[in-house]
């Protein structure tokens, strides 16, 4: 699409201290989930489940890429990346990230996220729901390694698990 109206940039998050001098930068989690849940509903109605998931994944990936550039900065050390990411995610109330496995050489990672922004506390639904998180992690890893990653949530609060677990595999060319 050449003539775009909504291309995202970090500036579009706005000057929150200027715009919300009294309410500040935080809001209730229900509001975030309300927006995500209704988006998912309408997208599914209009484009079908698979396409709705794709859109969520791609959006999460775009968010991960911007988050990496604007929040984490230029980090070349993997341990430093994990530490900065853990601190940022916790400070911003996104979740508690832990590493279960990391193989930089072969491009394989297992992460777990507790108290996840998207799903922790949701009713059991018999399907994994953190599609946006999958994309988010893929976006971060791609920016850090320069390689394409496919991320899949294998355990989720919504399937009765207490921890969301993500497996990331580098995409073979």
């Amino acid at each position: 699409m050449s003539d775009r109206k909504y291309q995202f940039s970090w500036d579009l998050l706005g000057d929150i201290s200027l715009g919300r001098p009294n309410l500040g930068p935080t809001t209730r989690l229900e509001v975030y989930r309300l927006m995500q849940g209704t988006f998912r509903d309408v997208l599914e109605q209009r484009y079908g489940t698979e396409k709705a998931d794709e859109i969520f994944y791609e959006s999460g990936k775009l968010a991960g890429q911007h988050f990496y550039k604007n929040v984490l900065g230029d980090i070349s050390d993997y341990v430093q990346l994990i530490r900065s990411l853990q601190e940022s995610l916790e400070t911003m109330g996104i979740g508690i990230l832990r590493v279960e496995q990391s193989d930089l050489e072969n491009g394989f990672f297992v992460f777990s996220v507790e108290e996840d922004l998207d799903c922790s506390g949701l009713p059991e639904l018999n399907y994994e729901i953190c599609t946006y998180d999958e994309g988010f992690i893929a976006g971060l890893l791609e920016n850090f390694t320069g390689k394409n990653f496919r991320v899949k949530e294998v355990d989720c609060w919504c399937t009765g698990d207490r921890t969301c677990r993500f497996e990331a595999n580098v995409e073979k060319k």
């Binding site: 832990r98 777990s112 059991e124 399937t159 009765g160 698990d161 921890t163």
Partner: peptide
């Protein structure tokens, strides 16, 4: 297996795996 009991055990496994990584 999904559900609470399996979920709690997987959480325990996840903690142990993270501890191993650390």
């Amino acid at each position: 297996t999904k559900g609470y009991l399996a979920g709690v055990l997987k959480m325990f496994q996840s903690h142990l795996r993270n501890l191993t990584w650390q």
